[in-house]
């Protein structure tokens, strides 16, 4: 998953030259985090999978059509396309049954078998957060996913969201506070 900046640039240039192998490599590198990003935004496994696949195909077509306007990283481009696709998705499903997050069966946690306790704990955390995340404002949720789930740098987030770095910092702080508030509200009745 970790990739140096130079490698990333190299990958982008190769992809720009319509190098298929490079694009598949990019898929391997970014599919997990993109899936996670989409999953937390749409809250549904099947839809997340569909959207993730569309993101890669759309990105490839976008590059083929040479529409690239000075993109700094392939990652930023993928996230931008993903965001647009999610917006389209919301528009299409508007008016339908509101999106619900999968139950635990839908969530695949990789090391569940290795450490059952850890997996259990994670599931618990996930459930709490999953129920709270959709209640957050869209931009707060987005920035939390990017920053804390996908561990993107402030600079990368700024590029994806078309915001300044300072703006992203403030947004992250506010998003985290809002999430804390939501979680504490939930806990109050339990005491």
């Amino acid at each position: 998953m970790n990739i140096s900046k130079i490698e990333e640039k190299l990958l982008l240039y190769k992809v720009k030259k319509n190098d298929k192998e490079a694009f598949i490599k990019a898929y391997d590198l970014y599919v997990d985090q993109l899936y996670r990003f989409i999953y937390f935004k749409v809250g549904n496994r099947e839809e997340a999978e569909d959207l993730s696949s569309s993101v890669f195909l759309k990105t490839w077509n976008y590059i083929l059509e040479k529409k690239l306007e000075n993109p700094n990283t392939l990652k930023a481009l993928l996230y931008k396309i993903a965001r647009n696709l999610i917006i389209d998705h919301y528009r299409k499903t508007k008016g339908r049954e509101s999106v619900s997050l999968d139950n635990e069966n839908g969530i695949k946690i990789i090391d569940e078998k290795q450490n059952p306790n850890y997996g259990l704990e994670l599931k618990a955390d996930l459930l709490v957060l999953e129920t709270k995340l959709p209640k957050l404002k869209d931009e707060y949720r987005e920035v939390i996913i990017l920053r804390f789930f996908n561990e993107l740098s402030i600079k990368e987030i700024a590029e994806i969201l078309d915001k300044s770095k300072g703006n992203v910092r403030v947004l992250t702080y506010r998003a985290l506070n809002a999430l804390k508030e939501l979680l504490s509200q939930d806990e109050k009745p339990s005491f």
């Binding site: 599919v31 997990d32 985090q33 899936y35 996670r36 999953y39 937390f40 496994r45 997340a48 999978e49 993730s52 969530i107 695949k108 946690i109 990789i110 090391d111 994670l122 955390d125 996930l126 709490v128 957060l129 939390i144 804390f148 789930f149 996908n150 561990e151 985290l176 999430l179 804390k180 979680l183 504490s184 806990e187 109050k188 005491f191």
Partner: peptide, 22 residues
């Protein structure tokens, strides 16, 4: 009265990066 601390929250958030597609 609430025992919610930032570290725990961040840890939970960080844990979520283990979510991966099938």
């Amino acid at each position: 009265q609430i025992n919610m601390n930032d570290r725990e929250l961040l840890k939970k958030l960080n844990n979520l990066k283990d979510i991966k597609p099938d």
